[in-house]
């Protein structure tokens, strides 16, 4: 009975399949955790990559994110979609990671990063059109994308995160407001401001 009521709550924002998966994870089923990782690992990796960008240890960050998901999944009450809830965890952990990394870099000189391609769980895929199609245009476009990414990642965190949420992940104002815990009016004004800052930094004509 209790399970049926909880599933109903989760159904408001999630599919029946996801609702059941959440419940099983909340009951501590290992197989359900396995399924949850399989279902959301690509999503989590992409969010981390988007928000931390050139980070070399995505594997470690993603692992910590999933461990936090398992730790806190019992607290998920279905007030938002599971994806939004996971997004919130990713953002919080990315913030912690950046803070720790900068604190460590103040204490220690950066170590050369060993090549661990064999152990990596991920691969960065270029989504731009094939250069053979129109080489000159593709090169120009690549440079522009790099300029925009650099501009976005040089923005203050409150603008950077919101722009990625809107432009890359296409979240609605409501979803962004829920994840960041701010009003829709603030979401609108921050997006507008972020876009304007990028337009000023990059030559887009």
């Amino acid at each position: 009975m209790a399970q049926a009521i909880m599933t109903d709550t989760y159904l408001e924002y999630n599919s029946p399949e996801v609702s059941e998966l959440v419940l099983r994870c909340q009951y501590g089923e290992r197989e359900a955790f396995d399924l949850l990782i399989a279902r959301y690992q690509r999503y989590v990796f992409n969010l981390i990559y988007q928000h931390l960008w050139n980070v070399e240890d995505i594997d470690d960050v993603a692992q910590e994110v999933f461990l936090r998901i398992f730790k806190f999944i019992r607290k998920y009450r279905g007030n938002a979609s599971l994806e939004s809830w996971i997004y919130k965890i990713v953002l919080n952990y990315c913030r912690t990671h950046v803070r720790r990394r900068s604190a460590l870099s103040r204490l220690f000189a950066p170590l050369p990063v060993a090549s661990q391609e064999d152990d990596q769980s991920f691969e960065i895929l270029d989504t731009l059109p094939d250069a053979t199609y129109d080489p000159a245009k593709t090169i120009e476009q690549r440079k522009l994308v790099q300029d925009i990414l650099s501009a976005v990642h040089s923005l203050p965190e409150i603008y950077r995160n919101i722009l990625i949420m809107r432009e890359v992940n296409e979240l609605s104002y409501e979803e962004i407001a829920e994840i960041l815990g701010i009003s829709i009016g603030t979401v609108k004004s921050r997006i507008s401001r972020a876009r304007d800052l990028v337009r000023q930094k990059v030559k887009l004509d």
Binding site: Y49, E123, I124
Partner: peptide, 8 residues
């Protein structure tokens, strides 16, 4: 259109 991550 920023790059995407593929996971093993």
């Amino acid at each position: 259109s920023m790059p995407e991550v593929s996971v093993h």
